[in-house]
Amino acid sequence: MPTLILVRHGRSTANTAGVLAGWTPGVALDERGAAQAAGLPARLAGIPLAAVVTSPLQRCRETLAPLLAARPELAPHTEERIGECDYGDWSGRKLSELADEPLWETVQRHPSAAAFPGGESLRAMQSRAVDAVREWNERIERDHGEQAVYLMCTHGDLIKAIVADALGLHLDQFQRITADPCSVTAIRYTRLRPYLLRLADTGDLSGLAPREMAGEEAGEEGREQGHSEDAAVGGGAGAP
């Protein structure tokens, strides 16, 4: 089955403002996010992409714009099911304020029980995202073959939930996963199990090319990143 490349959108104005954006309209990339997006075509240069699928939200479309300009043969497909979690009444509020809400601890410790007032539950978010991935896997394999690679541009909590599913983790463990802005996570799906090839990678991606096309594997350097005790709801702004 195909290899899925999950790209989180670049850093947004909401990320830097410490606001939980959700589906709030008009949330764009900030200056750093635009620079991250501009670097994406070079990072993916050696990887043939069968298709590009995107969340409908502005910050994802802006992230993909440089890649699509570099590869005009790719027409993006918009997929509502990989749009951001519907945080309902929490949308547009400061994360520092939300941390005082009783629901915050549930989101941190027992996310499978978390449902946002006026929005959706994290269980529903994971279910729709995983359903979308599985349906796109079948479509890509049917149209492009089992060795095909395709890309989805989506959001931090969506990526964490998809990775948790691929690893066979309960949703209550998904806050142990991080995905920085414009990071790349890659999952190769097979008949027996998924394989997590990259997680929140912000460096060289040449090793993701199909084996017969990949050059010598590049070494990876570890990087240090400070984290607070709580998971970054919505994905956070990434490393400083």
Rank of each mutant, 00 (worst) to 15 (best):
R123Y: 05
E141F: 02
V130P: 06
R142I: 04
K160H: 04
A132L: 05
S112G: 09
A148S: 12
E146H: 13
C153E: 13
A129F: 01
L122W: 02
P117S: 10
P111V: 03
A161D: 13
S112N: 12
E120H: 05
D157H: 09
G156Q: 01
E146D: 14
G118M: 07
M125H: 09
R142L: 08
A148D: 06
C153T: 12
G119N: 02
A132K: 07
M125Y: 11
E146N: 10
R139V: 13
C153R: 03
E138P: 02
V149E: 09
L158K: 04
S121I: 00
T154D: 13
H144Q: 09
A129Y: 01
L158W: 06
R134K: 15
W136T: 02
S121Q: 02
T154W: 03
S112R: 14
V163N: 07
A132R: 06
A161P: 06
C153W: 02
M152R: 00
L158Y: 02
R142G: 09
R128G: 01
L158T: 12
A124M: 02
D131L: 04
E138L: 12
R134P: 02
D131Q: 08
V133N: 08
P111I: 02
R142N: 07
C153V: 14
W136Y: 07
R134F: 14
A124Y: 00
A129S: 11
I162Y: 13
M152K: 00
Y150V: 11
A113M: 05
E146Y: 05
H155V: 09
M125T: 10
I159Y: 13
D165H: 14
D143V: 09
L122M: 12
E146K: 14
A132H: 11
D143I: 06
G156F: 07
E141R: 02
A113D: 06
E146T: 14
P111W: 11
D143K: 00
R134T: 12
A114R: 01
W136M: 02
A132Q: 04
C153L: 05
M152A: 13
G119A: 04
S121R: 00
L122H: 00
I140T: 12
I162E: 15
A148W: 15
M152P: 07
H155G: 05
K160C: 10
V133R: 10
E141V: 11
E146Q: 12
S112Y: 01
E141K: 02
A129P: 05
P111Y: 11
S127V: 04
S112T: 08
M125W: 08
E135G: 00
A114N: 07
A113S: 08
Q126H: 08
T154P: 12
R123E: 07
G145C: 09
G119F: 01
E146I: 13
E146L: 10
M125R: 03
S127Q: 14
Y150M: 09
A129M: 09
A164R: 10
V133L: 09
A148M: 12
R139P: 07
G156S: 05
V133I: 15
S127A: 15
G156R: 09
D131V: 05
V149H: 13
A164C: 06
T154A: 14
G145M: 10
A129L: 07
R123G: 00
Q147V: 06
S127M: 06
M125C: 08
R134H: 15
M152N: 06
